[in-house]
Each structure stands twice: as structure tokens, then as C-alpha cells.
């Protein structure tokens, strides 16, 4: 079994850095999340980019660095998956590769929005185009994280060891969250607000927050496991 201690330290640092940088950057400083409505007019959009130029660039760059910290977290997950698999760790490798996809598609839109905000005198039509491109790229691809969750769920359910790496109900929850990301391919159809638009109930609120809820749960479980293991060691 891989030595747990360094993994835990890396996971904890990554979790804190991702949360602070990405959430702080996107929600608080840049004001990009929650997403603006798709029907926002060009003039209003341009005004948003012109008037918040510095905070947009600061927040988006912070968030970009934050996305990098998501990777160590996901690869540590692959370590646990690999330990539960016999033979070639297919699901662990798959999860790791899908994690790269997730991170890239979370980061790329920031580059696009940064380009929109880069020059203050950019014409409104160009800003609107880059804005739309960024949002479609941010909101539409969900199969990366969905496949990650499917790998975790399937591995978890197949794990017949006395101490599986996650409890079975977390595997079922992972599969539920994965299905709950199936709406996002509908995003490009809607240029007005609605449940499936990029700011909608399903495509944003559920598709974004249910994975976060699952990650928070799994973190608490991991911390609980470590504390329990430490107590058992002390008792022994």
C-alpha cells in the first residue's frame, strides 16, 4: 500500500489552494460565477469588461492557478482506485486522464475571457463573441468529470475488501452526480435563460454544485478515516 502521509498532505494543500484560488477568483474577485444570463446585451457586456478590467484579470488569473491544484487531488484519487484493482489499473488510469480533461476545460475558458478583457478598447462584438466562447467551453463539457465519477463509483462498488476505499453509498452517490451532469450538452441551444442555459438550474446550479458537494463529503470521509486510523494506532 502506498504511504498515506505524503498523499494526505498533498491532498490537503491542493484542496485548500484550489478552493481559495478558484472560488475566490471566480466568485469573489472576477464576479464571473454565478454565470451572467446568456441574453445580456453587447453594450452591457462590454461595460462589464471595461469597468471591471483589473478585477476580472486578477480573479481569472488566480482561478487559473487554482485549477492546477485540482490535478494532484484527482491523481491521489487514482492511487486509491489502483489499490482496489487487480491487474492493470484501468479505472485509475482512466480517472487520471479524465481529470486532465476536466482541469483543462475548467482552465481554457479563463484564457478566452482574459483575451476579452486584455485590451480596454476592444469592440463590443468581439468581447461578446469571446464571452460566449468562454461560457460555452466552461458550461458544456461535463463528460470529463462525469467519467471520473463513474470510474470512482464502479471501482467503489467492485471493491470487495473489508475496508473499501469509500463506503458503498458514496459510490452510488458518485454515479448519481455523474448522471446529473448529463444536461450540460444542452447549453449551446439556449441563448436565453432557462433551466438548461449556462446559468440554469440544471446546467449550472446542479451540475456545478453536486460534484462540489460530493468532493466535500469524500474529503470529510477521508479525514475521518485518517483520524480513526491514528486512534487505532495509538490504542495498539
Amino acid at each position: 500500500m502506498t504511504n498515506r502521509k505524503p498523499l494526505i498532505i498533498v491532498a490537503a494543500v491542493s484542496m485548500v489552494m484550489t478552493t481559495l484560488l478558484y472560488v475566490g477568483g471566480m466568485f469573489v474577485i472576477a464576479g464571473f460565477l454565478p454565470p451572467p444570463p446568456p441574453e445580456l446585451g453587447q453594450a452591457e457586456l462590454a461595460a462589464f469588461y471595461y469597468n471591471n478590467h483589473t478585477s476580472i484579470i486578477t480573479g481569472l488569473t488566480m482561478a487559473l492557478v487554482g485549477t492546477g491544484f485540482m490535478l494532484p487531488l484527482c491523481i491521489i484519487g487514482s492511487v486509491f482506485l489502483a489499490e482496489s484493482e487487480e491487474g492493470f489499473p484501468f479505472f485509475a488510469v482512466m480517472q487520471g486522464l479524465c481529470a486532465v480533461v476536466t482541469v483543462l476545460f475548467t482552465a481554457f475558458p479563463n484564457f478566452i475571457w482574459l483575451a476579452a478583457a486584455f485590451r480596454i478598447d476592444r469592440p463590443p462584438e468581439m468581447i461578446a463573441l469571446l464571452h460566449d466562447l468562454g461560457w460555452i467551453m466552461w458550461a458544456t463539457p461535463s463528460w470529463g468529470f462525469a467519467f471520473q465519477l463513474i470510474c470512482v463509483g464502479v471501482c467503489g462498488l467492485r471493491d470487495k475488501r473489508p475496508q473499501p476505499f469509500i463506503p458503498r453509498w458514496m459510490s452510488y452517490l458518485a454515479l448519481w452526480v455523474a448522471i446529473g451532469m448529463a444536461y450540460t450538452p444542452l447549453v449551446p441551444f439556449y441563448t436565453v435563460s432557462g433551466p438548461f442555459a449556462w446559468n440554469g438550474l440544471f446546467s449550472f446550479w446542479i451540475a456545478f454544485f453536486s460534484p462540489i458537494f460530493w468532493i466535500i463529503l469524500v474529503s470529510f470521509l477521508a479525514i475521518g478515516n485518517i483520524v480513526k486510523n491514528n486512534h487505532q494506532k495509538v490504542a495498539a
Binding site: 459510490s171 452510488y172 452517490l173 448519481w176 446529473g180 438550474l201 440544471f202
Partner: peptide, 22 residues
Amino acid sequence: AETGIWAFILADMCIFALYFFI
């Protein structure tokens, strides 16, 4: 059947309930 699958089913049914309401 185990509790986990009941929880999964209930969660999915809650999402569908949202569809009905919408």
C-alpha cells in the same frame, strides 16, 4: 436491496420531481 441504491434512487427521483415542478 442495500440502502445505497435506495439513496441513489431517491436522489434521482428528487431531480425528476424538479422536472415535474418546472
